[in-house]
Design a protein around this nucleic acid. Structure first.
Lengths: 225, 225
DNA sequence: GCGAAGGTGGTACCGGCGTACTACTCGCTC
DNA sequence: GAGCGAGTAGTACGCCGGTACCACCTTCGC
């Protein structure tokens, strides 16, 4: 039986976790906390095996709370759970000493497996993040480049020359009017092109197209001045 | 439905996997192979989404087979499964291009979750190994891979915690309605937040905000599936 | 000479986005 | 208790974006 402390500022979210964990045969919820400071206090007194930690909370956040709990030196392991698949969050959490980092859209079984692993002294990382973690340390671990670029993507291949120009323009963040101005076209023409591009690449709106342009490497992030 | 090719030199082991995967609603075993060379051939013809690969096999082993399959450039992802929790195996497998590394003592649900993740383009590593992997690269985590440019930017600094969350959400390409749904807010509230974010960072519309999110490294380009 | 594909333009309509308010509730500080 | 910032929520309105059409023009290939 693994004892768990639930830390989240949303009562409904805590309830959800409690429902799941109390219906599982191997976990036992021994307490809850609504923010970081409370989490640190309760961990000291209740000594749970696993602390289920949200990041974004009023007052002390989950990262700082994790840091203090780990620094406390008890047996408690911290498993960070968050809505956002953000590298910054993950790195901060792991840097703070968390034993795991999972996303809240994980399936119940995955969460339970994560708790089990963390209680055993192992570590878990959300698969979506593991991918990027491996990519990040590719130099140390992997050999051989494995990145494909725009020209290999079937969605990009489906576009005509003019449409590719339009996609790049959209990726720059230009409005239809601006594109019309810079490419010397009528705005209605730009709309026609943009519409076709969206249909061909399967994008819902120009925002998805901007994201696609970045993912394909058509537009590169430019560090702020 | 995820198509799977089972590679293992023990018939009984293959049967075990087949039992598990055929009783799962989301996986479909489309073939088996008893050694590396056969695995490479079958992968080329059957084009499974996921190859379940054993390491120790007579003739060509799983590492070499993985290397060839990945080099082939198909869509197939390799998930390496082994009995032995050896760092050398894991590193060799990942260096060869495997998308995952799990131990055979994993629970059925964990294996299914792993297959699901790998098929999606994510990566999985056995928790026991993740622990050691994190320890190995602890020093890299200390500084962070790309540094922290977002925190240094005055525009980002001007945002409150909630507004930063909103900026990330906008950067993901989510509509106001989707953000409201995922963060459990009213759409009007999301609009208020987005409006304030745009004003603070000096963005004309949410598209500029998406671009800013990329430039600040809040969102990273993800290679196409 | 004809059709197909690509590029250019137009009209009309609707929905989501952005903005400009206002207002209530916390938790904090003074 | 007054004041403030942050978060949440509402209404109303104008505008841009996305779509569904259609029309015309080139440049090809057959």
């Amino acid at each position: 039986m693994t004892s768990v402390l639930i830390v989240d500022d949303h009562p409904l979210q805590r309830l959800g976790f409690r429902m799941l964990l109390e219906n599982a045969p191997e976990t036992d919820v021994i307490g809850e906390a609504a923010h970081g400071a409370e989490a640190v206090r309760r961990t000291a007194t209740l000594r749970p095996e696993v602390v289920l930690m949200d990041i974004r909370m009023p007052g002390m956040d989950g990262i700082e709370a994790t840091r203090r709990i780990v620094a406390g030196g008890g047996r408690s392991k911290v498993l960070v759970l968050t809505t956002f698949d953000l590298d910054e969050y993950a790195h901060a959490a792991l840097r703070a000493g968390a034993s795991g980092f999972l996303l809240k859209d994980a399936r119940p079984e995955e969460l339970l497996a994560g708790i089990r692993a963390v209680a055993k002294g192992d570590a878990v990382i959300a698969p979506a993040l593991t991918r990027r973690l491996l990519d990040t340390y590719a130099d140390h671990l992997l050999t051989g480049p494995r990145g494909r670029q725009a020209e290999d993507d079937p969605r990009y291949q489906a576009l005509t020359d003019r449409e590719r120009e339009i996609l790049v323009a959209v990726g720059q963040g230009w409005s239809n009017g601006e594109i019309a101005e810079r490419l010397v076209l009528a705005e209605s023409t730009v709309k026609t092109h943009v519409g076709r591009v969206l249909a061909k690449v399967g994008a819902r709106d120009r925002i998805q197209a901007v994201i696609l342009a970045y993912d394909l490497g058509l537009t590169r992030p430019q560090p702020p001045a």
